[in-house]
Amino acid sequence: MGESDSPVLSQQKATLSMTVPDSNRTSCAITTDYPPGDVAIWIFILAELSVFALLFVVYAFTRHYNLELFDLHQQQLDSRSGLINTLTLITSSYFVVRAVAAIQYGNARLCSRWLWGAIALGLLFLLVKGVEYQHHFSLGIGLSTNLFYTFYISLTFFHFMHVIMGMVILTVVALKAGRGGYCATEHTGVETAASYWHMVDLVWLILFPLVYVMR
């Protein structure tokens, strides 16, 4: 790690306290008590993660008591769509990382371009998921079909709404970045949006194996 570590922390302003640099690290990597972006979004992220955690755990235990049903219907899911969507979200998250890096160097235009790329991938995610839903609904499958689909649709749709929410946030930030609303020293907004988007990604990374793969 070199000097480069500090840009990640550049949201740190004089008002925030930093702890003494950790001498064990190769250079001046600095630990801090504050995550990137606005602390408020982190409280929100924690709350949102809790809702998902509850859903995941209830899914896992309900599955345990309905093993055959869950195994049978899980196999009817199109795991290729799940795979594509996982790769899409990971890449989208990566784009957002690049956007944050770009604004840390003061390159607002590049930042906004990466953000638009991330948003486009979000759109792709919605499209693939939409085709999947379309397939289910055309077979007459709904929330009431059976316990597995109750979970599958609730979980994925709740996540689906979060993707939309994340895209709205990213769009607001991308537009502001395009107008030159952020710079190398002040870009909390970008980091806030990025943190939220990574959370949407993180949730999917657990959701995908849990619902599509594990049996």
Binding site: T31, P35, V100
Partner: peptide
């Protein structure tokens, strides 16, 4: 994701 993308690696 947490450490590298969210950048929590440096958050104590």
């Amino acid at each position: 994701i947490i450490d590298r993308f969210m950048g929590l690696r440096w958050v104590g």
